[in-house]
Amino acid sequence: MAFEAKNITKNQLVSEVQSLKNNGFRFVTMSCVDLGDSLDLLYHFELNMQLTHLRLTVPKGDTAPSISGVYFAALLIENETKDHFGVNFDGLVLDFGGHLYLEEEVQKFPFCKVSVSDTKSEGGAL
C-alpha cells in the first residue's frame, strides 16, 4: 500500500476539497505530522474503497483554512489538531478554542516535539 499525497497550497485547499466532495468522496480523516518547524496536514478521502490523500504544509504558528464548512465531519479532527499541535483553523464551524480534550489551564501543545531554539549569546554571557 504505497502512500502518495497530492501537495496543495493553502489557497487551493478549500476549492480542492469542494471538488472532491462534488465527485462523491467521503471524508475519512485528517492527520497532522510535526516536521520540526512546520506541520504537515494530511487529508484522507475515500471513494469506492480507494483512498485519496492531500498534503498541506503549514509553518508552525500559522493558520490553515478550515474544511469544516465543506465537510461538517472535519470539525472534530480540526479541533483535535488545534489541541495537540496548535494549528489555528480559519472558519471552524464549532470552535472549542483548543479545549476539546484539554483543560483551560493547559498552555502547551502536547503533541508537538520539544524543540530548543538556538539562541547563542555572544561573548559568553551565559
Partner: peptide, 25 residues
C-alpha cells in the same frame, strides 16, 4: 497513519478510530 524515519522510534502514529467518525453523525 504511520511515519517512520528508520530510527528506533516511529515519527508519528496517527490513529483514527471509528467512534471519532461517528460522533458528528
Amino acid at each position: 497513519y504511520v511515519k517512520a524515519t528508520g530510527e528506533n522510534f516511529l515519527d508519528r502514529v496517527r490513529i483514527r478510530t471509528p467512534t471519532f467518525a461517528n460522533v458528528p453523525p
